[in-house]
Nucleic acid binder design. Structure first.
Lengths: 249, 249
DNA sequence: TAATATTTGTACGTATGTATG
DNA sequence: TCATACATACGTACAAATATT
């Protein structure tokens, strides 16, 4: 409005409290109150400045905070939209933690793999109960794909296989976390030794055993197969992480 | 440096790289390369502006992004420091998701509780093996505290009890996730019906059974006790979430 | 294809609240 | 109490990306 050099900007109220924190909160409330769904457009920055009574800098910083949490999504030259509420922030946090200090990467991955095993073993009864013929056929297809694929395609097939296992349990959070762990692995794993050919063949057999156990609706055999599936990987990761005491720093 | 109205700001280079070298990435790299630990101070915004060749706005927005992920911590009038790398972003994401639409809150909580049960049952063997006499005594103390406490103190004792269960397993990630789930519950749960007196007594008995199973080093009994512990809560939450199909909106 | 409007991204200057010594 | 260092906030101008005409 006024000239810039005069710098007359009455701060709205002498005792105002941390408006910056509130802006992000207000934007969140806007999303909730308007029942906006992922992908829906938000008001432009200038509109938000007007309705919230804040400067564009403040609005932008709040937007950056919300974007980091995947609550909003910012598209340059286009606008801001409601985010997909994924576990991307968890991935960002864990990947940074993995790179945080040498040796920690393997330890983080080991804990992640342990969690995946926990998921699939704990869900074993529900998994074998929920897998119908169609899903079993899909699992067969992924196993077949793994026999021929290599590199990135092998990883993709492996990931899809485990996604198909978890999905029918109905617990979306477990599925999303499993996906997040794969993302973390994709970022951190290149720093570690890759699987040997023998380990790859072993894993392939383990996948076949998983499908077989599911087909016979045998939760006990399924749990055993999960154990056999993750044992080599866990051993490799715990070996890379070193003994219990920190190895470096 | 120059006057502001002229607006002469040559953008550094016509074809500047821009990709992969965002300000936030560079700050993260700074932390990694200098081996900074949580709590260590970061350069001031002005120093970062100079070293990174960016304006305060850009640095501030990058800082906001990293602060949302708990990678850095901003203290007003003090400085910026390395964050504690907690799962706070996961909590923020899940709490927002819980408030996202009516009915979802209970569903998110139900999935969270299911995960906690998965953790403790999957870790049962390691838990009962790792709990020494000192830790068992601490668990007894928490159970005793729960018999007299009410409200927030009851919740605190309950939380500490389960933290003590998970901690000795050595999987820090599971412990942090359990803590994060408690945080989410504290935010979202007030919108739901609280436990009845009968359910509270039932939960107390369940905790005693957990300690008893751990004391006799009986993983099977421990798993059964975990099942009994979570059954009432899960039933209440699934009832609040309604049938599988969405109940509202 | 090209011009234009809209919207986000970046930069700079300035004033102010806050914590520390 | 004063001084300093720092983050917070506001306003403006311009660059860059996108969509529309």
């Amino acid at each position: 409005m006024q000239g810039s050099q005069a710098g007359r900007t009455p701060p709205r109220a002498p005792g105002r409290e941390q408006l910056g924190r509130t802006v992000a909160e207000q934007i969140k409330r806007h999303i909730l109150e308007h029942r906006l769904r992922p992908g829906d457009p938000l008001p432009t920055e200038n509109e938000l400045c007007a309705t919230l009574g804040a400067s564009r800098s403040s609005v932008r910083e709040a937007m950056k905070t919300l974007a980091a949490l995947d609550i909003v999504q910012i598209r340059h030259g286009n606008g801001t939209f409601v985010g997909s509420l994924s576990l991307a922030p968890l991935v960002a946090s864990l990947t940074f933690r993995g790179r945080y200090s040498p040796g920690d990467d393997a330890r983080v991955l080991a804990e992640l793999v342990e969690l995946r095993q926990l998921f699939e073993q704990g869900m074993a009864a529900r998994i074998v109960a929920a897998l119908d013929d169609d899903r079993l056929a899909e699992l067969d297809a992924q196993v077949a794909a793994m026999t021929t694929a290599t590199g990135a395609e092998l990883v993709a097939a492996d990931r899809e296989f485990h996604r198909l296992l978890i999905e029918p349990t109905g617990n979306a959070l477990v599925g999303q976390m499993t996906g997040a762990f794969w993302d973390v692995y994709a970022v951190v794993a290149p720093d570690l030794a890759t699987a040997s050919d023998a380990e790859t063949r072993q894993a392939l057999d383990a996948h076949r055993s998983l499908v077989a156990a599911a087909r016979t609706r045998d939760p006990g055999a399924f749990v055993t197969a999960v154990e056999a599936h993750y044992a080599p990987l866990r051993q490799r990761l715990t070996a890379a992480a070193g003994p219990v005491g920190r190895t470096n720093r």
